[in-house]
Design a protein around this nucleic acid. Structure first.
Length: 588
RNA sequence: GCACCCGUAGCUCAGCUGGAUAGAGCGCUGCCCUCCGAAGGCAGAGGUCGCACGUUCGAAUCGUGCCGGGUGCGCCA
């Protein structure tokens, strides 16, 4: 039950009816009409810009059109008053019976409240993390992982059919380096003293891989040439790295529907052409690939630039700034070529909408990838790319020093173990994804108002606590969700109570908008507001005892307020579950 | 040199896709526990929305140009 959507429908019906009657021209474009909560609550419950947006096409003055619309809107059941204000705003005030109806809907729908409006079951593929399988995940991966996961949750809640996908970069040179590094650890596990040369991965996390290789192959790999052992070692190493990454992700409560291997794109089984080969054939057939050379970048001089003929994709035809290479000088495909094939594969698996979550350092690749998707899917596929900016890790305001070479980089697991999943997830989402984020290890575990994670969880715990206490005061009151719908909700007429009801009524719209904008942080900020309203109402009961949620000698008012509290708890729990954060029964 | 992101209160940030008097936390000042969880709440002070033009009935939001910060810029991944 999205109040704002309902009134948007009412409005379209009114405009349609006026057109039928010949009062307004037919076919007015209502796409810019919005129904939203007015910024100032004294203006009413709903506001619309309809008159101002439609005035020009209707050939009426905004105020006159507003009067016309207002008269019709005033006739709708549940509407108490309609005003025209300012340049032509239409403000709608609902009568007191309306908020109880919203609450009743929440209590009936339970956790389904707010879900499923805009997705309409459309399939969406969300690809995120996709960290190289060459080591444990570090903090840098954390934000993209949490953002992608929460975005997927949000879209699923908004009614999309979401597939969560991880792209394993297991085909490039870096996994050969991984295999070489693992082979050294294998020899080490067999008793040799090793030194790890520059360019290989020095981390201790490869020692277990060495032991796994001994367990599987004994000493037999020692006699083989590199060309022979490398593929064998590579498989084990990648499997072990992916197992480690899955464990890291599990620590953040993140799971994927599909891990897609880049290697499968390159594979030529039984002498057949690979998926990338077939993509290239397709692009060539449509004259989107050619042999040519690129101009050197202007400005910043590139050392040892040499003009070179290469295989290029006509990215400029699809909005990119320059054509992009698909084949390396050694004849292998570029990462970009594989990536095009991968996205084409997603499209062929039935995804018209694809969302990729990338780190800030990949911002320069968005245009070429979108161009490629357009080209490879003949314009039918659509790729959105969400960029997660850097995270600056702090401790009490001081930057945490990290150096990969010194082995002092902080892993994702370190952070989760130090502060816990909930603070990590919430704080990573309590900022727009395209803004740099400061993450202070000391502050996020503080249990105070400074810490929004705690503040929101506390509101939920407080609501649950009220319900527990009510059970003692009124042992015979039925506190099951369904029974609450029988409460006399019209007793909720205090402004603080109505304020809470209005916030609850705004939740479905918020979900729609956050999903459409791909912005899970809006859910986090909304929850903060809702928590604040609950804490506020609680404290009003300190000064004004008749406003307390539990009134010992007023069973009916208590019951209505418990229904409200229960609805608040439901919505907080719902929002937190989108963020992947726990909604605790009590704080410890 | 070019592309993308950011610039809002002393600090850290929201601002509902162009609406009405720009909001919150921290910090500062002053209040509120014999009372459902004070791990909380209320009030006050504090802003030329980086700058300048432009579009519009209406701009923090859209366009153009500057200024400042970040990321990236032929075969790597």
């Amino acid at each position: 039950m999205n109040l704002f959507a309902i009134f948007a429908d009412h409005l379209r019906a009114v405009v349609g009816a006026l057109a039928v009657e010949g009062i307004l021209p037919a076919g007015l474009d209502v796409s810019r009409v919005v129904v939203e909560p007015p910024r100032d609550p004294s203006h009413g419950d709903l506001a619309t810009n309809a008159a101002m947006v439609l005035a020009k096409d209707a050939r009426l003055k905004p105020r006159d059109l507003a009067d016309l619309l207002a008269a019709r809107l005033g006739a709708i059941a549940g509407v108490r008053r309609v005003d025209v204000a300012g340049p032509g705003f239409i403000n709608i005030a609902l009568d007191g019976s309306f908020w109880p109806r919203v609450l009743a809907a929440v209590l009936t729908q339970g956790r389904a409240y707010g879900s499923g409006s805009i997705g309409a079951g459309a399939r969406v593929n969300v690809e995120y993390v996709s960290a190289n399988p060459t080591g444990p995940m570090h903090v840098g991966h954390c934000r993209g992982a949490v953002f992608g996961d929460a975005l997927a949750n949000l879209l699923a809640f908004a009614g999309f059919a979401v597939t969560r996908e991880y792209y394993i970069n297991d085909a490039g040179a870096q996994v050969d380096v991984l295999a070489q590094s693992a082979y050294l650890r294998y020899r080490e596990a067999l008793g040799e003293t090793i030194t790890i040369p520059e360019g290989l991965y020095p981390g201790d996390y490869l020692k277990p891989v060495g032991r796994d290789l001994v367990a599987k192959y004994g000493r037999t790999l020692l006699d083989k040439s590199e060309a022979e052992w490398l593929p064998l070692v590579r498989i084990i190493a990648i499997d072990d790295m992916m197992a480690m990454i899955r464990t890291d992700l599990a620590a953040l409560n993140i799971r994927f529907d599909l891990f897609f291997s880049e290697r499968t794109l390159h594979a030529r089984v039984g002498g057949n052409s690979s998926i990338i080969d077939r993509l290239m054939d397709d692009l060539r057939a449509r004259d989107l690939v050619y042999q040519g050379s690129l101009p050197p970048p202007k400005g910043a001089p590139v050392e040892d630039w040499e003009d070179r003929e290469q295989t290029l994709f006509r990215a400029t035809q699809f909005g990119d700034e320059i054509d992009r290479p698909l084949v390396k000088s050694d004849g292998a495909y570029t990462y970009f070529a594989a990536d095009i094939a991968y996205h084409k594969d997603k499209f062929d698996r039935g995804f018209r909408q694809m969302i990729d979550v990338w780190g800030a350092d990949h911002g320069g690749y968005i245009k070429r990838m979108q161009a490629a998707v357009k080209a490879a899917t003949a314009g039918e596929g659509h790729l959105d790319v969400e960029i997660c900016q850097l995270v600056r890790l702090l401790r009490n305001g001081e930057p945490v020093k990290m150096s990969k070479r010194a082995g002092t980089f902080v892993t994702l697991r370190d952070v989760v173990e130090e502060v816990g999943v909930d603070p990590v997830r919430f704080m990573m989402l309590y900022r727009k994804n395209d803004a740099v984020l400061d993450f202070d290890l000391a502050k996020v575990v503080e249990q105070s108002r400074d810490n929004p994670v705690f503040y929101v969880q506390y509101a939920h715990a407080r609501a649950r606590s009220i319900l527990r206490n009510a059970k003692e005061a009124f042992p015979d009151l039925p506190l099951e969700p369904a029974a609450f719908a029988q409460a006399e909700l019209s007793r909720l007429d205090d402004e603080g109570e109505v304020g809470l009801a209005k916030l609850i009524a705004a939740y479905p719209r918020l979900v729609d908008q956050a999903a459409a904008a791909r912005e899970p942080h809006r859910v986090a900020f909304y929850l903060y507001d809702l928590a604040s309203a609950l804490h506020g109402q609680w404290n009003r009961g300190k000064d004004l005892p008749h406003l307390r949620f539990i009134i010992e000698d007023d069973r009916n008012s208590t019951y209505a307020r418990l229904a409200l509290v229960h609805a608040v708890a439901l919505v907080i729990a719902s929002g937190l579950s989108i963020l992947g954060v726990d909604a605790p029964e009590e704080m410890r």
